[in-house]
Simulated assay, not measured.
Amino acid sequence: MTSAHLNAAGAGLMPESVVAAIKSHLDLEARRGVHWAAADARHAIEETRILAGRLTGVAPTHLAFGEQASRLWALAFASMPLKRGDRILIARNDWGGNIVNAVRRAAAAGAEVVRLPMTGQGRIDIEQAAALVDERTVAICASAVASSFGLRQPVEALGSIARPDACLYFIDGAQAVGQFELTLPGASADVMVAPGRKWLRGGRGQAMMALSDRALRRLVEPIIVDQSAGTWCPDDRFLPLEDARRFEAWEFCAAGRLGLRASFQELDRIGIANVRAGNDEKLRRLGANLRDISGLTVFEDEDAGAAFLTFQHASLPANRIVEELAMRGIAVASVGLDHARWELEARGLERIVRAAPHIYSSEDDIGRFTEELERLAARADLDRGRSA
């Protein structure tokens, strides 16, 4: 059975160049040992930082790597000065891990968490959000695209709102970087994170964080430091590095980092505009197919520049749809309260199905997905009719 992968929002399929880069370095590690292999590849590894900085719009000195985007976000957020009475503005559809970390830290410090207002279409309401920003605001947090619904959020407009000098603007770019033009300075952001495994197709265990000058000034003392992230002084003081590497650990997967480098090179070869155009075309076909299936509700307008499409069926639970399709070799995902509680509760939902094609997704992939989903829906309708 041939497989169809429509889960780029979870993890995109690695191109051959990425796989080759990872395998090649693993072979080198097997021959020379991991330390010598990393030393041999140091220039290529450092080029990864340059390419990541170019993609996110920052100098290499303002780019940090880690294993997981949400951990980098949490590390930066935990390193931000916070006191009783401070206010954190955060979108209800931000990544669940970001929300949990913000809520926990605010509770410990006596700070206030305020949800950013949303429009009826599920986008951040910029005018109302601006009215919430005052001298107490120390952080504004949003995802460029939520993991629960595929509409692009107006993060550039949110960044244009006047805010106190001490206020840091956090953007989670997990569902945007690699398929939309999004840079840290373009969005007037201070902290922006993204993983390598989604739309960049760089494999698992690699993520990046871009920082502004303001963020580097505010986050001088990371809550956790690695001995390589600064200088251990004779008097036992620790002086963090002046650049973003203060947030990095000495230990990392060099093969994975080189795979990420290859993914940046692949994106440069294809062109992000071509990626977006290709994804838009696939989403239009996918959306048209889904809207023809009885009992199905699609939550995005595929003509409005969505990152992916989400839906629910009137009688088929989301988990069952995902499991049944998986047995037929078709990969989609579901998103539930465990990852998107605030957003789903606001919409009166518990779990939805997410279909996320990428440029490698073929017409046959979308056709097979549609046919199998139609069969599941028809069988559900038949079962419901028998039990009526």
Rank of each mutant, 00 (worst) to 15 (best):
W232E: 09
V220F: 14
D243Y: 05
L6V: 11
L258R: 08
P81S: 02
R257C: 04
A157L: 13
M14C: 07
H5A: 08
L200D: 04
I140S: 03
A102G: 12
G287M: 05
V34H: 10
V220S: 12
G202N: 00
W232I: 13
A131H: 10
G230M: 12
A144E: 11
R71V: 11
G202W: 05
A139C: 00
Q175D: 11
D213H: 15
A102D: 07
L89F: 03
Q179V: 12
N7I: 02
P81G: 01
A355D: 04
I90G: 01
V138D: 09
I330L: 12
G12S: 06
L184S: 05
E350V: 13
E371Q: 04
T119S: 10
E248F: 07
L283D: 10
I161T: 01
R341N: 13
I293M: 02
V34I: 14
S263E: 03
R368P: 01
G96W: 08
A142N: 03
G278N: 12
T231V: 12
A307M: 12
L51E: 10
A111H: 10
L26C: 13
L337Y: 10
A346E: 06
S188I: 00
M327H: 15
E372H: 15
A277M: 02
T310Y: 11
D292G: 06
G278E: 10
L158Q: 14
R54G: 06
A106E: 02
C253A: 10
E281W: 14
G202K: 07
D40M: 14
K198I: 08
R105Y: 07
L267S: 00
W95K: 13
L116S: 07
M208I: 06
S148R: 04
A244W: 07
V322S: 03
G336S: 05
A21K: 02
S3E: 15
G348R: 04
E221G: 11
F180N: 01
